[in-house]
Amino acid sequence: MSEKKAKKQSLFTRLLVENPVFGLYLGICSALAITTNINNAIGMGIAVTIVLTLSNILVSSIRNLTPADIHIPVYIVIIATLVTIVGMVIQAYTPSLYSALGAFIDLIVVNCIILGRAEAFASMNPIGPSILDGLTMGCSYTMSILAMSFFRQILGTGMLSLSNPFTNAEIFSIRLIPEGFELPFFKEQFGAFITFACLAAAVSAFKANVEKKEKSAEL
């Protein structure tokens, strides 16, 4: 029954309903803290996707060798290693991104999404589906934090800008709100919470709508 439902739901619907950030409230620490501009969001999103996919691959490949009661430390060691390597690479090749993301690169280790997917999916499925799952969840996460940064950056600074993290060259920068009319509190904690709350409420309303439609379709 649930498979039929899943097939009926379009990809977009599924992405929203099973959204790790706004639907399941996982990984919200980073979603709130670093989403002040879309540069950071893309950087963080890619980092998390890479770690997630690689960890899924590794966990899936040793899933038959790992006894049940030490699986947590095993996954933690794998994820921590991946995060440290990704962190070193970011620090070496994109130092501006490193200073923008700060401590949150290291905190990817405790990002509930990664350990959650490792336990819920990768430990029970072969490598192929695990890769797909990792990529999907990673993209979903990236889209969510991109949405947050989009709103926060436009409302908070009035501009939308993207720059190449490797060379610090600006790719584009457009001003959407005239100077002096932007709302700086969106760059701060207050704005982060408000944006998150509104987006979460929107997703929640969407979810309820979908469920209502399905219920009435069944009747």
């Binding site: 070193m88 690479v89 620090q91």
Partner: peptide, 9 residues
């Protein structure tokens, strides 16, 4: 990884 990236950092 450290050996590769530390000098660049």
């Amino acid at each position: 990884a450290n050996a590769i990236t530390a000098p660049i950092i």
